[in-house]
C-alpha cells in the first residue's frame, strides 16, 4: 500500500476526505447564492439567464462543475460508509443514554441524506430541464443608447437545444438582441407549486443544521483548532453557513410563490 492510500484509509484520513469535500461544497454555496441573487432583479430574468449561459459554457467553470458533481457524490457515499463503520463500532447500544453532543452533530448522516435527496430533486427541476428539457426561449432587446431592456418570449426555428445564446446587433435601431433559454421562467413555474416551495424551505433548514456542525467540524478534522481563530470559525459557521446562506436560498422559492 502506498503511503497515500495508507494515510487516506486511516480513520483520520477518511475524515480528512470528508472535511475537504465538505468545505469545498461550502465554498460552492457562496458562488451559487451570489448567482441566484440575480433572480431578485426585476429585469424579466435578463441578468440571471445570461449568467446561466456563462456558467454552462465557460470551460473553467465547466471543469470545476465536474469536480463539484464528484464531490457531492463522494461526500454522500463516503459519509454513509463512515456512518456504517461507526455503527459497527458499537454493536450493542445502551438501554439508557444521555446523548451528549449537539443534535446536529449526532445526526449528520440523516441530515446529509435529506440534503442529497434535495439536490437530486433540485437538479431535476433545473439542471436537467436546462440541459435536456424543453424550455421556452426569450429574446432580450437592449437599447444601446438608453440601456432599456425589453423581453419577448420567442421560439425561432433556427434554435436547437445545443444553441445557448444568440447575440445580434441592429445598428439601424441601435439595439442589441440576445436570445437565450429562459431558466428564469422555469423558476417562476416551479415555485408556483406550494408543496415544492415547502420542500425547498425545509431542505434549507436541514442544510443549516448540517452546516452548523459540518463547517467547524471540517476545520477541527484538518487540525485547524487554535484559540486565536476558533471564535472566527465558530461565528462564520453559525451566522454565515448555518443561518445566512440557507435563509437567503430559502427566500428565493418563497419570493416567487408570493410574487
Amino acid at each position: 500500500m502506498s503511503w497515500l492510500t495508507k494515510t487516506l484509509s486511516s480513520s483520520i484520513g477518511k475524515k480528512v476526505l470528508m472535511a475537504i469535500t465538505g468545505l469545498f461544497l461550502c465554498s460552492f454555496l457562496i458562488i451559487h447564492l451570489m448567482g441566484n441573487l440575480q433572480l431578485f432583479k426585476d429585469d424579466g430574468g435578463y441578468a440571471f439567464n445570461t449568467y446561466t449561459v456563462f456558467m454552462t459554457t465557460n470551460p473553467l467553470i465547466k471543469t470545476v462543475s465536474y469536480v463539484l458533481y464528484f464531490s457531492i457524490l463522494f461526500h454522500a457515499v463516503w459519509g454513509i460508509y463512515l456512518e456504517y463503520q461507526n455503527k459497527k463500532a458499537r454493536p450493542q447500544g445502551y438501554a439508557m443514554s444521555k446523548n451528549q453532543g449537539s443534535l446536529a452533530s449526532r445526526n449528520m448522516a440523516i441530515l446529509g441524506t435529506i440534503i442529497f435527496v434535495y439536490i437530486a430533486v433540485h437538479l431535476g427541476d433545473f439542471w436537467y430541464e436546462y440541459k435536456f428539457g424543453h424550455l421556452p426561449y426569450v429574446t432580450y432587446t437592449e437599447s444601446l443608447s438608453t440601456g432599456e431592456v425589453t423581453a419577448i418570449e420567442t421560439l425561432p426555428d433556427s434554435y436547437t437545444q445545443e444553441v445557448k445564446m444568440l447575440e445580434t446587433f441592429n445598428e439601424a435601431e441601435g439595439t442589441k438582441s440576445i436570445t437565450v433559454k429562459d431558466l428564469y421562467v422555469e423558476a417562476e413555474e416551479a415555485f408556483s407549486k406550494p408543496l415544492l416551495v415547502i420542500f425547498y424551505v425545509i431542505s434549507m433548514v436541514v442544510l443549516g443544521f448540517h452546516l452548523l456542525h459540518g463547517f467547524q467540524s471540517g476545520f477541527q478534522t484538518l487540525g485547524l483548532n487554535h484559540p486565536k481563530y476558533n471564535p472566527l470559525i465558530k461565528k462564520v459557521g453559525i451566522w454565515v453557513f448555518a443561518i445566512l446562506i440557507p435563509f437567503a436560498f430559502a427566500v428565493i422559492p418563497v419570493y416567487f410563490l408570493i410574487k
Partner: peptide, 15 residues
C-alpha cells in the same frame, strides 16, 4: 493500532 482495534471514526460531536 487504534484503527486495528475496531474503534469508530471521530465525528467531532464533543461527547
Amino acid at each position: 493500532q487504534m484503527d486495528a482495534e475496531g474503534f469508530g471514526n471521530c465525528t467531532n460531536t464533543g461527547a
